[in-house]
Protein backbone atom coordinates (compact mmCIF):
# COMPACT_ATOMS: atom_id res chain seq x y z
CA UNK A 1 0.00 0.00 0.00
CA UNK A 2 1.52 3.24 -1.16
CA UNK A 3 -0.11 6.41 0.06
CA UNK A 4 0.73 9.92 -1.13
CA UNK A 5 -0.68 12.74 0.91
CA UNK A 6 -0.88 16.39 -0.19
CA UNK A 7 2.41 16.24 -2.02
CA UNK A 8 3.77 19.44 -3.58
CA UNK A 9 7.14 20.00 -5.14
CA UNK A 10 9.03 23.13 -6.09
CA UNK A 11 12.20 23.17 -8.15
CA UNK A 12 14.18 26.43 -7.96
CA UNK A 13 11.05 28.14 -6.62
CA UNK A 14 9.01 26.97 -9.63
CA UNK A 15 5.97 24.82 -8.87
CA UNK A 16 6.14 21.41 -10.55
CA UNK A 17 3.03 19.83 -9.02
CA UNK A 18 0.74 20.68 -6.17
CA UNK A 19 -1.50 18.91 -3.64
CA UNK A 20 -1.22 15.45 -5.09
CA UNK A 21 -3.14 12.67 -3.40
CA UNK A 22 -2.74 9.09 -4.48
CA UNK A 23 -3.21 5.68 -2.99
CA UNK A 24 -2.22 2.45 -4.66
CA UNK A 25 -3.36 -0.75 -2.99
CA UNK A 26 -1.87 -4.21 -3.35
CA UNK A 27 -2.42 -5.75 -6.77
CA UNK A 28 -2.96 -2.45 -8.54
CA UNK A 29 -1.19 -1.00 -11.54
CA UNK A 30 -1.09 2.75 -12.12
CA UNK A 31 0.17 4.73 -15.05
CA UNK A 32 1.17 8.37 -14.96
CA UNK A 33 0.57 10.01 -18.28
CA UNK A 34 1.46 13.49 -19.36
CA UNK A 35 3.26 15.56 -21.91
CA UNK A 36 6.96 16.33 -21.77
CA UNK A 37 7.98 18.44 -18.83
CA UNK A 38 4.78 17.78 -16.90
CA UNK A 39 6.79 16.39 -14.00
CA UNK A 40 6.34 12.62 -14.38
CA UNK A 41 9.95 11.70 -13.67
CA UNK A 42 10.13 14.31 -10.92
CA UNK A 43 7.08 12.78 -9.26
CA UNK A 44 8.65 9.30 -9.29
CA UNK A 45 11.88 10.67 -7.88
CA UNK A 46 10.03 12.50 -5.12
CA UNK A 47 8.24 9.28 -4.20
CA UNK A 48 11.61 7.54 -3.97
CA UNK A 49 13.00 10.35 -1.82
CA UNK A 50 15.79 11.03 -4.32
CA UNK A 51 14.32 14.49 -4.62
CA UNK A 52 13.31 16.00 -1.34
CA UNK A 53 9.83 17.46 -0.99
CA UNK A 54 9.21 19.69 2.00
CA UNK A 55 5.42 19.69 1.66
CA UNK A 56 3.38 16.52 1.94
CA UNK A 57 4.00 12.98 3.10
CA UNK A 58 4.46 9.57 1.56
CA UNK A 59 3.57 6.38 3.40
CA UNK A 60 4.62 2.86 2.57
CA UNK A 61 2.70 0.16 4.45
CA UNK A 62 1.53 2.78 6.90
CA UNK A 63 4.99 4.15 7.69
CA UNK A 64 6.41 7.49 6.66
CA UNK A 65 9.16 6.65 4.17
CA UNK A 66 11.44 9.44 5.32
CA UNK A 67 11.82 7.76 8.68
CA UNK A 68 12.10 4.22 7.30
CA UNK A 69 13.87 4.94 4.07
CA UNK A 70 15.92 1.75 3.87
CA UNK A 71 12.92 -0.45 4.73
CA UNK A 72 11.13 1.22 1.85
CA UNK A 73 14.06 0.77 -0.53
CA UNK A 74 14.30 -2.85 0.52
CA UNK A 75 10.94 -3.53 -1.11
CA UNK A 76 11.31 -1.32 -4.16
CA UNK A 77 12.75 -1.72 -7.63
CA UNK A 78 13.35 1.50 -9.52
CA UNK A 79 13.92 1.39 -13.28
CA UNK A 80 15.28 4.74 -14.39
CA UNK A 81 15.10 6.26 -17.84
CA UNK A 82 18.87 5.92 -18.08
CA UNK A 83 20.47 2.49 -18.13
CA UNK A 84 22.19 1.45 -14.94
CA UNK A 85 24.19 -1.29 -16.62
CA UNK A 86 27.89 -0.49 -16.94
CA UNK A 87 28.82 -0.31 -20.58
CA UNK A 88 32.29 -1.71 -19.98
CA UNK A 89 31.13 -4.89 -18.22
CA UNK A 90 29.56 -7.98 -19.75
CA UNK A 91 25.86 -8.76 -19.50
CA UNK A 92 26.50 -11.52 -16.99
CA UNK A 93 28.74 -9.33 -14.82
CA UNK A 94 26.01 -6.72 -14.65
CA UNK A 95 23.42 -9.32 -13.72
CA UNK A 96 25.74 -10.69 -11.06
CA UNK A 97 26.16 -7.25 -9.54
CA UNK A 98 22.40 -6.64 -9.35
CA UNK A 99 21.82 -10.14 -8.05
CA UNK A 100 24.31 -9.58 -5.25
CA UNK A 101 22.94 -6.16 -4.32
CA UNK A 102 19.40 -7.44 -3.89
CA UNK A 103 20.60 -10.78 -2.43
CA UNK A 104 18.46 -12.56 -5.00
CA UNK A 105 17.90 -16.30 -4.71
CA UNK A 106 18.05 -16.95 -8.45
CA UNK A 107 20.77 -19.37 -9.51
CA UNK A 108 22.69 -19.44 -12.79
CA UNK A 109 20.22 -21.83 -14.37
CA UNK A 110 17.30 -19.44 -13.74
CA UNK A 111 19.26 -16.59 -15.21
CA UNK A 112 20.02 -18.53 -18.37
CA UNK A 113 16.29 -19.21 -18.67
CA UNK A 114 15.48 -15.54 -18.15
CA UNK A 115 18.00 -14.44 -20.76
CA UNK A 116 16.46 -16.98 -23.11
CA UNK A 117 12.97 -15.47 -22.76
CA UNK A 118 14.27 -11.98 -23.39
CA UNK A 119 16.31 -13.24 -26.32
CA UNK A 120 19.60 -12.12 -24.76
CA UNK A 121 21.21 -15.52 -24.24
CA UNK A 122 23.78 -15.18 -27.04
CA UNK A 123 25.07 -11.91 -25.52
CA UNK A 124 25.74 -13.35 -22.09
CA UNK A 125 29.49 -12.72 -22.26
CA UNK A 126 29.35 -9.65 -24.49
CA UNK A 127 30.07 -6.21 -23.13
CA UNK A 128 27.00 -4.03 -22.81
CA UNK A 129 28.53 -1.37 -25.07
CA UNK A 130 28.08 -3.70 -28.08
CA UNK A 131 24.34 -4.22 -27.48
CA UNK A 132 21.63 -2.25 -29.26
CA UNK A 133 19.54 0.33 -27.41
CA UNK A 134 16.52 -1.95 -27.17
CA UNK A 135 18.60 -4.84 -25.87
CA UNK A 136 20.14 -2.66 -23.17
CA UNK A 137 16.65 -1.62 -22.14
CA UNK A 138 15.58 -5.27 -21.96
CA UNK A 139 18.61 -6.03 -19.82
CA UNK A 140 17.57 -3.17 -17.55
CA UNK A 141 14.04 -4.60 -17.22
CA UNK A 142 15.55 -7.93 -16.13
CA UNK A 143 16.17 -6.23 -12.80
CA UNK A 144 12.44 -6.42 -12.11
CA UNK A 145 12.56 -10.19 -12.02
CA UNK A 146 16.02 -10.47 -10.47
CA UNK A 147 15.28 -8.30 -7.47
CA UNK A 148 11.85 -9.80 -6.65
CA UNK A 149 10.60 -6.70 -4.81
CA UNK A 150 7.01 -5.84 -4.07
CA UNK A 151 6.82 -2.29 -5.40
CA UNK A 152 7.91 -1.58 -8.96
CA UNK A 153 8.48 2.01 -9.99
CA UNK A 154 9.35 2.45 -13.65
CA UNK A 155 10.20 5.50 -15.73
CA UNK A 156 9.37 5.11 -19.43
CA UNK A 157 9.61 1.29 -19.49
CA UNK A 158 8.23 1.01 -23.04
CA UNK A 159 10.88 3.15 -24.72
CA UNK A 160 12.98 1.38 -27.39
CA UNK A 161 11.10 -1.93 -27.03
CA UNK A 162 9.77 -3.96 -29.99
CA UNK A 163 6.26 -5.46 -30.10
CA UNK A 164 7.29 -8.86 -28.80
CA UNK A 165 9.14 -7.37 -25.81
CA UNK A 166 6.20 -5.10 -25.02
CA UNK A 167 3.98 -8.17 -24.89
CA UNK A 168 6.42 -9.94 -22.56
CA UNK A 169 6.61 -6.86 -20.36
CA UNK A 170 2.83 -6.56 -20.17
CA UNK A 171 2.61 -10.24 -19.24
CA UNK A 172 5.25 -9.68 -16.54
CA UNK A 173 3.24 -6.78 -15.14
CA UNK A 174 0.07 -8.88 -15.03
CA UNK A 175 1.88 -11.74 -13.29
CA UNK A 176 3.24 -9.32 -10.71
CA UNK A 177 -0.19 -7.82 -10.02
CA UNK A 178 -1.68 -11.27 -9.58
CA UNK A 179 0.96 -11.89 -6.91
CA UNK A 180 -0.29 -8.81 -5.01
CA UNK A 181 2.51 -6.57 -6.24
CA UNK A 182 2.22 -2.84 -6.83
CA UNK A 183 3.28 -1.15 -10.07
CA UNK A 184 3.63 2.56 -10.74
CA UNK A 185 5.01 3.69 -14.04
CA UNK A 186 5.29 6.83 -16.16
CA UNK A 187 4.92 6.61 -19.91
CA UNK A 188 3.43 8.23 -23.02
CA UNK A 189 2.64 4.78 -24.38
CA UNK A 190 -0.84 3.33 -23.84
CA UNK A 191 -0.38 -0.35 -23.03
CA UNK A 192 -3.27 -2.81 -23.24
CA UNK A 193 -3.48 -3.99 -19.63
CA UNK A 194 -6.74 -4.68 -17.85
CA UNK A 195 -7.61 -2.66 -14.76
CA UNK A 196 -4.97 -0.06 -15.62
CA UNK A 197 -5.50 3.11 -13.67
CA UNK A 198 -4.36 6.27 -15.41
CA UNK A 199 -3.42 9.51 -13.73
CA UNK A 200 -3.25 12.42 -16.11
CA UNK A 201 -0.58 14.98 -15.29
CA UNK A 202 -1.55 17.61 -17.82
Amino acid sequence: MLLVNNLSFYRNDILIFEDLNLSIGNGQITQIRGKNGSGKTTFLKVILNILDSKIGEIFWEGKNIKKNIFNFYNETTFIMDQNTSSRKLTVFDNINFWRGLSSSKLNDYDINLLLETFNLKKYKDTKVMYLSTGEVKKLELLRLILEKKKLWILDEPYNHLDDLSIEILNQTFIDHINKDGIILFASHFNPSIENLRVIDFN
Binding site: L48, I50, F70, Y73, N74, T76, F78, M80, Q82, N83, T84, S85, S86, R87, W98, L101, S102
Partner: peptide, 16 residues
Protein backbone atom coordinates in the same frame (compact mmCIF):
# COMPACT_ATOMS: atom_id res chain seq x y z
CA UNK B 1 30.95 10.71 -13.33
CA UNK B 2 30.18 7.31 -14.90
CA UNK B 3 28.37 5.92 -11.89
CA UNK B 4 26.50 9.16 -11.45
CA UNK B 5 25.35 9.43 -15.05
CA UNK B 6 24.08 5.87 -15.37
CA UNK B 7 22.42 5.80 -11.97
CA UNK B 8 24.53 3.08 -10.33
CA UNK B 9 24.95 5.41 -7.34
CA UNK B 10 21.17 5.43 -6.83
CA UNK B 11 20.90 1.65 -7.25
CA UNK B 12 23.73 1.12 -4.81
CA UNK B 13 22.17 3.54 -2.35
CA UNK B 14 18.79 1.82 -2.66
CA UNK B 15 20.40 -1.47 -1.68
CA UNK B 16 20.92 0.02 1.76
Amino acid sequence: EDDFNNGVLIIFHMSG
